[in-house]
């Protein structure tokens, strides 16, 4: 894989993670537990979709085939999406939404911090901006994890079961794709092994305060994720997201 193709693949992954998770969060809009939290979750969704637009836009530019962010978001099929399985899981209850968000925010925060130092200027610019937004997302989701874990008996049970479920999908966060291996060598992207340990210590600290229990090791994970493999949930998510755009190909909105 040449370094340009690797960079496009990697940028698609960054964009797709945020687009798909932003989609899941946007499903809460109008349905959150309280008005203030409706606004908070929508803010995070907006940040994520904004980040996705930038990453996909850059991917399209580098790819050089005339595809912009919209073309990449709306006219690729599920097998072409490069996101982690963690972000495509259904939103579940508020506990699952928060716990998944927290695990991803911690991952995203450390990744974006590292990417802000990337040898690729366009990428480092977007990552720097996104890291600031993500620092706030992490603060929000971490505070909520603690409140749900150490709130009532019911919230504790729900949060623990959300953690057990989401945890199954965290292993895939740290399996490098061939593209990432290429990019790590040239200093464009960080080494995922180093990332895992800082992620883990951020997660450990919050989980300790939440009185929840973390399953011991990262679960084993399939090799095909981010190379075309997905859970069954992505297909229906994209069918919904892309339906209107695909019904009117070539139209301007």
């Amino acid at each position: 894989m040449d370094s340009n193709a690797a960079l496009v693949d990697f940028l698609l992954g960054l964009g797709d993670d945020r687009l798909v998770l932003g989609h899941r969060l946007s499903e809460w809009c109008g349905h959150a537990p309280i008005l203030e939290e409706d606004i908070a979750l929508t803010n995070i969704a907006l940040d994520l979709i904004g980040q996705a637009t930038l990453f996909l836009g850059l991917a399209g530019d580098i790819e050089g085939k005339g595809r912009d962010a919209d073309a990449l978001a709306y006219f690729r099929s599920d097998r072409e999406f490069r996101n982690h399985p963690l972000v495509e899981l259904p939103k579940g209850d508020f506990a699952f939404t928060i716990v998944r968000q927290f695990l991803f925010d911690a991952f995203g925060y450390h990744l974006l911090q590292a990417l802000a130092e990337s040898a690729h200027e366009g990428l480092s610019g977007i990552a720097g901006k996104s890291a600031k937004e993500t620092a706030y997302h992490l603060r929000h989701s971490a505070e909520w994890v603690v409140r749900l874990g150490d709130g009532t008996e019911e919230s504790h049970v729900r949060a623990q079961s959300a953690l057990d479920e989401a945890w199954r999908w965290t292993g895939a966060l740290f399996v490098p794709t061939p593209a990432e291996a290429v990019l790590a060598e040239s200093g464009v992207a960080p080494d995922l092994v180093g990332l895992e340990s800082v992620w883990r210590s951020s997660v450990d600290e919050v989980i300790r305060n939440s009185t929840l229990e973390l399953p011991e090791a990262l679960p084993p994970t399939g090799k095909g994720y981010r190379r075309g493999d997905h859970t069954e949930h992505l297909g229906t998510l994209l069918a919904e997201m892309q339906s209107l755009a695909r019904a009117h190909p070539g139209a301007t909105w």
Partner: peptide, 16 residues
């Protein structure tokens, strides 16, 4: 189902 990313963000911001 908003048909473009820009429209999606505008609509989210509006409903928010």
């Amino acid at each position: 189902r908003a048909p473009s990313l820009r429209r999606k963000m505008v609509l989210l911001a509006k409903v928010q």
